[in-house]
Design a protein around this nucleic acid. Structure first.
Lengths: 340, 340
DNA sequence: TTGTATGCGTTATCAG
DNA sequence: CTGATAACGCATACAA
């Protein structure tokens, strides 16, 4: 027994009407008499008619779905972003189709090709650490697919971008360390190609400069896969701690890297702040209860999701081209705990 | 400038062929000559042809999408489940469409209606705490929609169910408390209507019984909305702690409730295990680093997701009816920390 | 081996 | 006010 949905045709047959009449009645067209409307509506109700969205999509040339590509759903930051997206999409009757890149450019591309085979009306994407080649994305954009970037953006594609204030977050975090007397501040950054990494590094650099602390290049380590693999963080940390001049504080440049650092320090029995101060980006739950404690830069993930979805929907629903702008969600919080 | 996709028709025109020939060539049909195949394929490649999935869906009467309804995406347990689902779906070329019920029966129903308007081939659902009326879901199932339940199941709908070993998890957790000498063990349970709640309560009851500890009904508190609202947990905890006989240990019956309890204890300055021992279900990251420490029952969320998706796909792709069975994923872990 | 015609479910256009 | 017909993009039974 297959799932046989009831269609307009069925209703038309059973009521001895034409499909067009039924269709119009269901859409409450003014050119249908109240009497027939009632008959049709009642019957539709009775047999549980639901319009076939696929057919509607084909006809209307839109799917009422938006695609979302993030590196990993099971990452607090992104799951909160998705939550925000969903909350807005739901209100506007849009579906959310999720895909994860797992920080792989190849998977990202496959998802992209799949989602854009006319099955989505617009796309919200946070590019993977691996993504070097934007040409496909760019082509899609040029061909008219509404795109909104969230968090990890690509500068030379001109469309809405929703980002947290990475520069200020990193600046404040670094400054906070400086103010506590730390002078050898290492940073464990995400892949250097990422927009967020560059902004965060900038904030770090400027905070040091403003404090007249010389920047040491060997205090900067990178996790090319965004900490997707723990060993990446492990070796970066080991490298940092092996320097002649050891860092007295570490600034973890992303959620995943932050948790990795915590794991590493726990494992190696490195205490905070005695042995090494720690501050990092994190949207993980319950960070206020961690031990070793953790000073945290928290991103407004949910709000970023909401903003992205709103912008995307405005892009989708407006016929005219809009001014594309960057939205900086300002409420990046700096939460200080005794880890620093 | 709209997003104008290239269709089979375009290719046919440009190549002076019929649409059917093009269609067949693209699908590598044996009844097309190698020569034309090559011409078509090359051209399709050149112009970047991507078959319109909506049209394919309409024709084939399947969408290559599966729907997932959970209470909240930004909940570690569910995000890990989704991750598992996605990993399997992706390999089989299926899309995942996510919807959240936010523990509201109404939203769940709306999502259900929306998703099943022929836009999904099957459904994976974890019912909301509020869900009392299964009739719509049941009707869908009877009409042939493949459904797999994950974690929170409905007993009288006969289909595949993927659940963790809630009974054993709760039994072991309670027993562990008993063995440490706790005798006044409270449980903060999820909504009593939920399958998981009942199983967990059962495990709790049996563990007490086996230890000859009388069950006190006033040691059982419920969070009807699964802890979606913090005040719910707060008042439940207050109620428990106001009893003449105060509990010396608390067993938190879900992820959300566990984090709620931790928050509450922090706020009220209740120490663990001195003032109150704490154990709870949790799939949150970094629980091993929490302070107050937390003994944890961890569910195999990712594996549950994988299993659900595999079962659903087998349901979708097999024409014959199958034996519907319950899959108990056994690897529920009990992770003991100094909180108990 | 290729082309023609038809239908998937819906809506829009055009007649009546 | 209502009905017949075409079209969205694709795939296939049937002709040629």
């Amino acid at each position: 027994m297959k799932f046989e949905a009831v269609t307009i045709k069925h209703i038309a047959m059973e009521l001895g009407l034409s499909t067009s009449t039924v269709s119009r009645a269901l859409r409450d067209s003014h050119e249908i008499s109240q009497a027939t409307k009632k008959i049709v509506l009642d019957h539709a109700q009775k047999v549980g008619f639901k319009p076939n969205r696929i057919a509607q999509s084909l006809k209307e040339r839109k799917s009422l779905s938006i695609g979302v590509i993030v590196c990993e759903i099971a990452n607090s930051f992104f799951s909160q972003v998705i939550n925000g997206i969903d909350s807005v999409a739901y209100e506007h009757g849009y579906n959310v189709i999720i895909a994860q890149s797992m920080e792989s450019a190849e998977r990202e591309l496959m998802n992209l090709e799949y989602l854009t085979s006319s099955s989505i009306d617009g796309l919200i994407i946070s590019v993977s650490t691996e993504t070097k080649n934007f040409s496909y994305l760019k082509k899609l954009h040029e061909r008219g697919l509404p795109i909104v970037f969230v968090d990890r953006v690509i500068d030379d594609i001109e469309t809405h971008k929703v980002i947290a204030d990475n520069y200020r977050g990193a600046y404040k975090a670094t400054k906070h360390l400086v103010e506590r007397g730390y002078k050898k501040i290492a940073i464990l950054s995400n892949n250097s190609g990422l927009s967020i990494s560059q902004e965060r590094l900038e904030g770090y650099r400027d905070a040091l400069k403003d404090a007249n602390i010389p920047l040491r290049e060997n205090m900067i380590a990178y996790c090319d896969h965004g900490g997707m693999i723990y060993s990446e963080i492990e070796s970066a940390m080991k490298m940092l701690l092996k320097q002649r001049v050891k860092p007295d504080a570490v600034f973890a440049g992303s959620d995943k890297i932050t948790t990795g650092c915590l794991r590493f320090m726990k494992q190696k029995n490195i205490r905070t702040p005695q042995d090494l101060a720690l501050i990092g980006f994190s949207n993980t739950d319950l960070t206020e209860l961690l031990n070793p404690p953790l000073s945290v830069i928290k991103q407004p993930a949910f709000e970023m999701g909401q903003a992205s979805a709103s912008l995307l929907l405005s892009l989708i629903e407006s016929k005219k081209p809009q001014n594309k702008f960057e939205t900086r969600i300002q409420s990046t919080e700096l939460l200080i705990r005794k880890s620093t």
